[in-house]
Amino acid sequence: MSVAIIDYGSGNLHSALKAFERAAREGESGETISIVSDPEAVRTANRIVLPGVGAFADCRRGLLAIDGMLEALTECVQKRGTPFLGICVGMQLLADRGLEHGVTPGLGWIGGEVAPIQPKDPSLKIPHMGWNSLSANVQHPILADIPTGESGLHAYFVHSYYLRAANPAHVLATTDYGEPLTAIVGRDNVVGVQFHPEKSQIMGLRLISNFLRWRP
């Protein structure tokens, strides 16, 4: 089994690779994890991970700059049902459009848009940066063995925009920052997390492990 972490020029993927390798090793799931930038390597992968840091439009541009990548992703994720995990901006790209520095189209796999966090309470800082707890809306295999709620485990967030899903059923979990912000989205074989599992210590490793075992 192989897991492809897509490198499209959006930041360092080294810690993501190491976190996936560790989860695979400790979960004894036997996956090989690779960082790939070749659409053919995406096509042969059993699971696909789309990371992303920085601005929405930059990430989209980076993805489109690789000839055939969008087609390969669409074919695998939309037609063949390959399990997919988007991380941070890689999760935001699932939406119809992003509103950061102008309107940019997204993949449109999860209906909705990516809008700025605008807390009513001025003491709430932007970016939403640090460790926050999750509220699960549904039971989902990606959250297996991860206690949620105020007494549950925490995830590391750093973002100024969030995905406002058109269909509330696609919001698997939220995090509270003056208002509930989308923390995990999902439908069918697609999940996306706003936080950084590769930086979320035990919580992140469990989530990655869950993704590696997930059979949607």
Binding site: E26, G27, D145, H154, Q201, I202, M203, L205, R206
Partner: peptide, 11 residues
């Protein structure tokens, strides 16, 4: 505060 258990290992 975050007081999560700190075994950075997967069960």
């Amino acid at each position: 505060m975050r007081l999560d258990p700190q075994t950075s290992s997967v069960q």
